[in-house]
Amino acid sequence: MRPKSGQEQMEWIDAYLHDALSSTERAAFEKEMISNPEFAREVEFMQQADSVIDDFLLAEMVGEIHAEKVQEWKDAEAEPAKETPVIPLHREPQQVPWWKWSAGTAAAVTIAFTSYITLSPIQVQDTLSQTLRGGDASISEQPSRICFENFYAGRSFVMTQQPSQAIPRLQQVIDCEVRPYFKDASKWYLTVAYLQANQPKEAETIYQEITENPDFSYDITWLDKQKISWQIRIAKWFGKDEA
């Protein structure tokens, strides 16, 4: 039997919406809803109010988490490089023979270059700028949407150093019916991703496919080529392969 007062009716609807009625009470409630349109509208309003309250609380929760995460991102970006302070020592100038100076410089340059190509991360380029905006790509040549999304997500995961997320997506792009440029770009990203995942053998296999393909269409800079070959070699020497 439907309660008479508005307040009791609210409690009755509340109990129904939160599964607090017995099966007999539920049946009576639903019968009332069918026979009384005004009551049905009241139930509808209470459902809508419930949904708005849920969304309000969800927005509040996401807002709190978001504020924390933004702070984490800012802290990570602002973290200064940890460098040992260099204290200059005063020394009397000395005459250095030219051959010593040249040999020293050559050694320093070699060490600096080797350190650079060993430690410097490989930059992943903005492919859309290079090709999609190039002008001669017709719509029919564009990758399917899912392939495109995987391509974009895979690339972003490589950029954010999340190789385990990047690898399966880029592999899917290679298996897609897309034009060779996207497959070639994905192969390059996959090489970088395997290296990030400490899987140099897989990185080497893909990179070999790249170097042995005369029609490879993605533009890799000379410096990136040096970096990748050297970093694959280093990873193999030090046995970092977890595969």
Binding site: K69, F157, Q165
Partner: peptide, 11 residues
């Protein structure tokens, strides 16, 4: 939701 932030939102 934290997992969505940590693992899925960077793209």
């Amino acid at each position: 939701i934290r997992d969505v932030y940590d693992h899925h939102i960077s793209p």
